[in-house]
Write a protein that binds this DNA or RNA. Structure first.
Lengths: 330, 330
DNA sequence: CACGATAGTGCAACCGGTTGCAGAACTACT
DNA sequence: AGTAGTTCTGCAACCGGTTGCACTATCGTG
């Protein structure tokens, strides 16, 4: 026989019922439908419950109601600084609605993302998929079963929170143009990232009058950014916009290694504003408000649990100009 | 009546039992204890289950077995760069053991931590408490009821993963001494952090021959670090060791604001090595290996679920010397 | 051939909540 | 007083699994 986890006794409604000299139903109703009981009964039962340290058993509740009181948030990489603030504010908002949060890290893989979702699905009421790498088809399939909120993925008809980088991106392009740059590089992120696609589009359309060289860096990381510098140099660009701040950091390091100084020799703009104030020189970046997005996503999902109406929340961005952008010198 | 989430019909063991013309018990055993059944029965039942697309209901299973297939990791601040790698590797290890991970963020508050734990306890098999702010008493109480693994908290008898900063700290002190510093500041973190206590101790004992000025910065944040610089200057120290890299970043910024250049005018050592390579100048820091700790904690917890033997894993640290430390000039 | 051991299966209780329904107590009105 | 209507509470069934125990074959053995 396999060793079994010792069952923790735990206080049940039965214990409370006995202590409060009422039936189990009354205890249950004192929490779920207090309107049905007299005020004194409710107070009494709740007092006893507090005294005994009662905590409802979610599994049991879920079994009879079909509600779990859990949600899941799935991210491609929790170590990417964009996500922790998002997860943090999301969990905080969920907590106030008495929802517990599962965290899944897909490691930037659509396949692992699908597995995680399948594993979590039977015990959550809904999902927040942040920058999902999953195919549209699978997402729609999932959304048909349970409430789903997307962050930074734009699928018509599915509730979503979009950080619209176009505002900030356009400002960035304008700034670089004004500073005299005519050839800029875009250090592109994962192809299946909606944010990346949006940024590419905005760049190619807003960039009339200057040449945009797209350089793929793949998985957005410090190393990837640092290693892409040779390609940047080869491209002849005098400025670059990077997919996110992590990549920018890497680029900054790579440029320094080559003795190219920022901003006098080269201008750099990041995205997401996750590290912006922390670099030296401080990074000009497109603000994103990941925390805002987290709260918005949580609220949207919570609302969705009550009333399944699709909605889309867009968060505007703007450029925060710091110390990595300057006029061309040559 | 409150609007209810539509119950997803779902195939139950009852359906399978009917289709396979066996009892519900047999279906259950076909999955949980196949040794008890004849091979044909097992095959038959499983085939029927597959045909009907059966997916076990975790909540129901948990209700009768007390096993949930979930664990929880609670951190004081997921936005602190020490934790994401830890959580990431922990979730990855949990995934291979088919465990789903709840994430709780206590916002550095012992009270919220207790609430989170109480909320999650009824649906997890065990906890990983990373840098818990909770009182020893409450932790022991919890550990008495379920498997608990602590990270960076040293309570005798409770399984724990300790990142032992003494090695790296001692090296740091030695280095500063060698560089000619005689008065250094320690920018201390949260009082209820074990890591902080350990670092204080090591500093005061290893620092024979030099004066250590302890400056409390409270919650470890960029802003707190930046704002502590005035106190640092006042202390007359020529070097500082900060509670973590985030604080160091802030200090770096604060020093620059005051025109104090690093490392020529002032030496700085961080802890945790979370951002180390990313700052300018690159930060000398005590390595920590949060990811290693995450994996170790997950493995320890998984092992603990089978066999409740207390264990303690210690992860050694060393100093990574980069560009923020130099000899005193005056 | 009788008998105990063993393997395979089913019955029914249980996990800890929720909820439809019924009944009790009390009020209001004729 | 009798009746209808309300308000409050309890009974018991149910959610979907798991498991102790009992029962029935089947088999080997004395």
């Amino acid at each position: 026989m396999s060793p079994r986890l010792q069952r923790v006794p735990g206080v049940t409604i039965g214990d409370i019922a006995a202590a409060a000299r009422v039936s189990r139903s009354t205890v249950s109703r004192a929490f779920t439908r207090p309107q049905l009981l007299s005020a004194e009964t409710v107070d009494h039962v709740r007092a006893v419950a507090v005294r005994l340290g009662y905590v409802g058993n979610q599994a049991a509740r879920a079994l009879s109601t079909g509600r779990f009181g859990n949600i899941a948030v799935v991210v491609p990489d929790i170590a990417n600084p964009f996500f922790p603030p998002l997860v943090r504010s999301l969990q905080s908002a969920a907590e106030t609605a008495d929802l517990a949060v599962f965290l899944g890290d897909s490691d930037e893989s659509a396949e692992r993302e699908a597995k995680l979702i399948a594993r979590l699905a039977p015990q959550v009421e809904g999902f927040v998929l942040a920058s999902p790498r999953l195919s549209e088809e699978l997402i729609r399939e999932l959304a048909a079963t349970r409430p789903v909120v997307l962050v930074n993925r734009d699928l018509e008809g599915i509730p979503r929170v979009l950080i619209d980088s176009s505002g900030g991106m356009t400002e960035a392009v304008m700034l670089l143009k004004k500073l005299g740059h005519t050839r800029i590089a875009y250090l592109a992120g994962p192809r299946d990232s909606w944010s990346d696609q949006q940024r590419r589009e905005v760049l190619t359309s807003a960039a009339s009058g200057l040449t945009v060289e797209v350089i793929e860096v793949g998985r957005p990381s410090y190393a990837a950014g640092r290693d892409s510098v040779s390609a940047v140099v080869r491209s002849g660009a005098t400025a670059a916009i990077a997919f996110d701040d992590v990549v920018s950091q890497g680029v900054l390091a790579g440029l320094e290694l080559r003795g190219i100084s920022v901003p006098s020799d080269f201008s750099l703009v990041g995205c997401d504003d996750t590290l912006a104030a922390l670099t030296t020189p401080a990074l000009t970046s497109v603000s994103a408000g990941a925390a805002t997005a987290g709260t918005a996503a949580a609220k949207l999902l919570i609302q969705l649990l009550e009333d399944p109406t699709a909605e889309c929340i867009t968060i505007a961005t703007h450029l925060v100009i710091r110390a990595t952008t300057a006029a061309v010198t040559r």
